[in-house]
Nucleic acid binder design. Structure first.
Length: 433
DNA sequence: TCTGGGGTCCTAGGACCC
DNA sequence: TCTGGGGTCCTAGGACCC
C-alpha cells in the first residue's frame, strides 16, 4: 500500500491580495551611518557577538569581497587593507531603530506583520490605492526622512512573490522598488536561482537541482503534489505561492513558546562558580523577556559546552531539562532551579566556551490554574518592581548577586558604537563647523 | 588567541490507547 | 501459521529564516 496524504496545503481564498515587503538596506550598517555620517559611501562590516564573525556588510564592503559569516580573524587582513570600518553589534541601537521604523510603517496600513528586526510585510489590498509603486515610494521616502534608514519595497500577490520582488528591487533597480504581477512573473522567476527563493536553503536547493529544478521558474512549474511527497507541506506551499495562490497570511504576533538566552564567553571559563554566574545571568535575561509577554514557564533547559575548535581537550556538551512542579515566572526561584541543574552536568578540568538557558513550554498568565504553590502576592509585586526599575534606568540597574559583580566572562564587544538613542549619557553630539 | 544568537515549523518514529 | 486500524502525544532532529 502506498502512503496516503490526507491534507493538501490549505490556501487562503483571497482574490487579488497585494503584499508589500519593506526591507531595510544593509540595516546594521545603515544604523551606524545615521549617527556617523562620515561613514557614507565607506565600507562597513558589523561583527557577531564576541566579535566572532561578519554578520552584516555595507554595499561597499560587499563589493570588496568580504564574505558573510566568515570569522573575523580570517578576513582581518582584507578588512584592514581595504580600510573597512568595523563595528561590534549594538543590538540596543538596532532594536530601537527597528521599533521606530515599524511604528512608522504601521501608519501606512492596519494589516501588517513585523517579520524580523529589519523587515515587515504590509497588506495593501484593502486600501484605496491607484498605484502600488507610488505608495511604496511614499513609504520609502517617509522612512528615510524620519529615521535616515534606506529601505527597499517589493510588491506581489503573495508573500513569497513579494520577497522575490524585494530581491529584484535591491539587486536590479536603482530606486529599490519593484512589483511582480501576472505579466512579468515568469520572466522574473526565470532569472532567479531556486536557492534564492524564500524558504529554499542550500540543502533543499541541492535536492531540487538533482530533480532538474534549477530556476525559480522551473520550481513554479513543478507539481505541488510531487513536491509534497518528496519534501513537505512547506515546500508545496512555496510552489503554490509562486503561482500567485496565497498560502501564507499575515502572522499575528503570538507570544513565544520558548525563550532562550545564551552567549559564548569572552574568555575561557573553567570554574563552576563562574559558570553559575553566567547561568544566573541568562536566567535573568530570559525571565525578564518572559514576564514582558505575560507568560509562565513549565520548565527550564540548561546547557554548557566547550569549543568544537579547541583541539587540546575533548568536545564536551551537556544539558539538562528541569520540569517545575508548577509554572514559574519568578527570577529568584528559576535561578535556584537552574543552579541546581548545572551542578549535575558540570565536568571539571574543562575550559568552557558557551552556556545558556531556555525557558520551556510557556503558558499565558491568564491560563494559569492557581494552586498551593502559586507565587505569593509579595513575589509578584517584587518582580513587577524589579522590571519597572530596570526599564526606567537601564538593563541590569538591579540584578541578582548570583550573577556575579564583575562578570569577566561576558562577551567581547571591543568596537561597539554608542547607545545613541537609549542612553542619556551616549547621545550623539553635533559639532558646528 | 579568535568560528553568533534566537527563533519557527515540520516529520518520523516510538509509546500508548481502544 | 496468520498479529488490524485508527488515533494521540511526545521527542529528537532536520531545515529554514534573519
Amino acid at each position: 500500500m502506498g502512503r496516503r496524504y490526507y491534507c493538501t496545503a490549505r490556501c487562503l481564498a483571497m482574490e487579488n491580495a497585494i503584499y508589500a515587503l519593506v526591507d531595510c538596506n544593509n540595516f546594521y550598517a545603515s544604523c551606524e551611518r545615521v549617527f556617523n555620517p562620515a561613514l557614507k559611501h565607506k565600507p562597513i562590516v558589523i561583527l557577531s557577538n564576541n566579535d566572532g564573525c561578519v554578520i552584516a556588510r555595507s554595499n561597499e564592503a560587499k563589493a570588496i569581497g568580504i564574505p558573510m559569516g566568515l570569522p573575523y580573524f580570517q578576513c582581518k587582513t582584507l578588512i584592514e587593507q581595504s580600510h573597512t570600518h568595523v563595528f561590534s553589534s549594538n543590538y540596543t541601537l538596532y532594536g530601537d531603530m527597528s521599533s521606530r521604523i515599524m511604528s512608522l510603517l504601521s501608519a501606512f496600513t492596519p494589516e501588517y506583520e513585523i517579520y524580523s528586526i529589519d523587515e515587515a510585510f504590509l497588506k495593501l489590498d484593502s486600501l484605496a490605492i491607484q498605484d502600488h509603486l507610488v505608495y511604496a515610494s511614499k513609504i520609502q521616502q517617509h522612512i528615510l526622512k524620519s529615521t535616515g534608514i534606506p529601505v527597499s519595497v517589493g510588491i506581489g500577490p503573495t508573500k513569497t512573490l513579494a520577497k522575490v520582488a524585494n530581491y529584484i528591487a535591491k539587486k536590479k533597480t536603482l530606486l529599490g522598488l519593484f512589483e511582480i504581477h501576472a505579466a512579468n512573473v515568469e520572466e522574473m522567476l526565470a532569472s532567479l536561482a531556486v536557492e534564492d527563493i524564500w524558504g529554499i536553503g542550500n540543502n533543499l536547493g541541492k535536492r531540487l537541482r538533482q530533480m532538474h529544478i534549477h530556476s525559480a521558474l522551473d520550481f513554479k512549474q513543478a507539481s505541488p503534489v510531487k513536491m509534497r511527497k518528496q519534501f513537505s507541506v512547506v515546500v508545496e506551499k512555496i510552489v503554490h505561492e509562486l503561482n500567485s495562490l496565497s498560502c501564507l497570511g499575515l502572522n499575528e504576533i503570538e507570544p513565544k513558546q520558548s525563550i532562550t538566552s545564551s552567549r559564548s564567553f569572552g574568555i575561557k571559563v573553567t570554574e563552576l562558580a563562574r559558570l553559575k554566574e553566567a547561568i544566573a545571568y541568562h536566567s535573568t535575561i530570559a525571565c525578564t523577556k518572559m514576564r514582558k509577554q505575560h507568560s509562565f514557564a513549565r520548565g527550564i533547559y540548561v546547557f554548557i559546552k566547550t569549543s568544537k575548535h579547541n583541539e587540546k581537550q575533548p568536545y564536551y556538551r551537556n544539558a539538562i531539562t528541569v520540569t517545575f512542579e508548577s509554572p514559574l515566572n519568578d527570577t529568584g526561584l528559576i535561578i535556584q532551579q537552574a543552579l541546581q541543574a548545572i551542578e549535575k552536568i558540570f565536568c571539571p578540568h574543562l575550559s568552557y566556551h558557551k552556556a545558556g538557558v531556555m525557558l520551556l513550554d510557556l503558558i499565558d498568565a491568564s491560563l494559569l490554574q492557581p494552586d498551593l504553590f502559586s507565587p505569593s502576592p509579595n513575589r509578584v509585586i517584587l518582580m513587577e518592581a524589579l522590571d519597572k526599575i530596570n526599564a526606567k534606568f537601564q538593563k541590569g540597574a538591579l540584578f541578582y548577586a548570583a550573577e556575579g559583580i564583575q562578570k569577566k566572562w561576558q562577551m567581547k564587544r571591543g568596537k561597539k558604537s554608542s547607545d545613541f538613542t537609549t542612553n542619556w549619557k551616549e547621545l550623539a553630539i553635533a559639532y558646528a563647523k
